[in-house]
Design a protein around this nucleic acid. Structure first.
Length: 486
RNA sequence: GGCCCCAUAGUCUAGCGGUUAGGACGGCGCCCUCUCACGGCGCAGUCCCGGGUUCAAUUCCCGGUGGGGUCACCA
């Protein structure tokens, strides 16, 4: 059997805890079965792919112990693994489908599509999706128009009647009415495939037998089954894992939960504790135990022990589990972990330039740099200085929210880039640069006096900065409305 | 809104027709102790509701309710 592990690197895409969660189950199942895994990198096109992000995701997965450099390994024969390097395959597949009539060219404009969708939504139609406008274009016309260079996409012709029954390993039969399945776009007008096409074509050529992915894909699975059928290929076994949730039960998101593996690393969580914790999300090793390591999980793994209620990712419980792992380490091991984490020469050398003028004795160092060695900081003592003079609580909250988004869009988290973005934001928002800088300082450090702001943010990194800004935002919300200083 | 998935304490879960409904986190209390932690012990707290099926439903079926997902030339 062969399983695939997908990673989707985007310009600012961080290694996501959800990616690790799904990767974990793929990894464990494959190792349990003595199977193989194929890594697939879903860089959709030139504008969105980002090599640095790709590397960061792989590094983070290795950090938690999911290592594709060892073991029953990456299926070399199926290279290349980047979607952007497999376009010829998708093109050929599309030609095949067009030839058999299983797919057709659609020349509709985006405007027309938007109009159709709006009409359907406004009239509360039971089906919202493509209306089949281009289905009836005769083959000869279709070919001629394409040859003339007319812009078009390629859609799958889905059946009008009957049902498509998806076999899900965890749920059994899941039935969908064909009349409600959209004529899915396979090939975009820019010549790149959609996920649906690339996914099916790659999984087939890479001889994937088991697809373990998140539940959010369940409703598009009938389209994938239909696509396999159109090609005359055998579909893999589908296994849809429950979705990790925020405390409010919605799908886990960075607005409500730290979601980047880099956050957990920076905050000083032990990778084996994080992995163990993820293993208890929707899966159990037995009735009275929740501590286990990767190898043990691999040895006894079974899908029969999956529970389908979406598990809430609970930082408090993760922290408790981490504490137990930490205590199980001997002193020397903890020293080694500390070194790797923040007490490396490399890290200290980043800190020293920031504080050398601020320390009169070596012993001042710890007091001046403590904010770099903390993860979540306490805003309670800052209650009186979070809201800038002359600004309202609501304004401050809104500003913090937008600042987080600004930081999220930065490609490299360098001081120069951060400063430029902060100044640009000040210009746009009508806040004075000084005000923005102070808000950023307080929000990211819970302190009024710090080393130079942009260098500080850069060293802290995107994930710690974001987390602290969010915590500050929450602390602001908890303030009485009268907290603003006149 | 249509479709799809799900439902055991606040949270993660065990259970797969008959159990005092088990474990973990969190909470509370006690013990240990120069403090604080750690550790140990204990307590409180759960089968969403309504119908069936059955001698017997947390467990099986149906309906409701609730939560979630999904309805893009994103993945």
């Amino acid at each position: 059997m062969t399983v695939r592990v997908r990673i989707a690197p985007s310009p600012t895409g961080d290694p996501h805890v959800g990616t690790a969660y799904i990767a974990l189950f793929n990894y464990v199942f494959a190792r349990n079965q003595g199977g193989k895994f194929v890594l697939r990198i879903e860089d959709t096109d030139q504008t969105r792919s980002h090599p640095a992000s790709e590397a960061a995701i792989l590094r983070a997965l290795r950090w938690v112990g999911l290592n594709w450099d060892e073991g029953p390994d990456v299926g070399g024969p199926h290279a290349p693994y980047r979607q952007s390097e497999r376009t010829e395959l998708y093109r050929k597949a599309t030609v095949d489908l067009l030839g058999t009539g299983a797919a057709y060219r659609c020349f509709c404009t985006v405007e027309r599509l938007d109009g159709v969708r709006k009409t359907q939504q406004d009239s509360k139609a039971p089906f919202v999706g493509y209306d089949g406008h281009c289905r009836a274009i005769p083959m000869a016309d279709s070919v001629a128009r394409a040859a003339k260079g007319e812009v078009h996409v390629v859609r799958l012709r889905t059946p009008d009647h009957g049902d498509t029954v998806v076999q899900d390993r965890l749920r059994g039969e899941v039935r969908f009415e064909n009349s409600r399945i959209d004529d899915q776009i396979l090939m975009k007008s820019d010549g790149f495939p959609t996920y649906h096409l690339a996914n099916v074509v790659d999984d087939h050529h890479m001889e994937i037998t088991h697809v373990i992915r998140a539940e959010e894909w369940l409703t598009s699975t009938p389209k994938h089954d239909l696509l396999y059928a159109a090609f005359g290929w055998k579909a893999p076994e589908w296994i849809h894992m429950p979705l990790l949730r925020n405390p409010d039960k919605s799908k886990i998101s960075k607005r409500k939960n730290p979601v980047s593996l880099d956050y957990y690393k920076d905050a000083g969580f032990l990778p084996e504790a994080l992995l163990n914790y993820l293993g208890t999300m929707g899966w159990s090793i037995s009735g009275d135990r929740d501590h286990f390591d990767l190898e043990e999980m691999i040895k006894v793994f079974s899908f029969d022990r999956i529970s389908l209620g979406g598990p809430v990712f609970d930082l408090v419980k993760l922290t408790a589990m981490n504490a137990q792992y930490l205590r199980a380490l001997d002193d020397a091991a903890i020293v080694a972990r500390l070194r790797d984490w923040r007490f490396s020469d490399a890290y200290l050398q980043r800190l020293v330039p920031l504080v050398r003028e601020r320390i009169d004795k070596l012993s001042d160092f710890v007091g001046k740099t403590d904010l770099f060695f903390e993860a979540d900081v306490d805003f309670a003592p800052m209650a009186n200085s979070m809201i800038p003079k002359g600004r309202s609580k609501a304004e401050t909250i809104e500003c913090l929210k937008e600042l987080v988004e600004v930081l999220d869009t930065l490609r490299d988290f360098t001081p120069v880039e951060i400063e430029a973005a902060a100044r640009a934001f000040a210009e746009k928002s009508g806040w004075k640069p000084k005000e923005i800088f102070m808000l950023l300082r307080v929000g990211a450090t819970a302190r009024n006096a710090t080393p130079p702001l942009f260098e500080t943010l850069s060293v802290l990194g995107r994930d710690l900065s974001r987390r602290r800004l969010r915590l500050c935002l929450e602390a602001c919300k908890a303030l009485p409305d009268s907290a603003a200083v006149a």
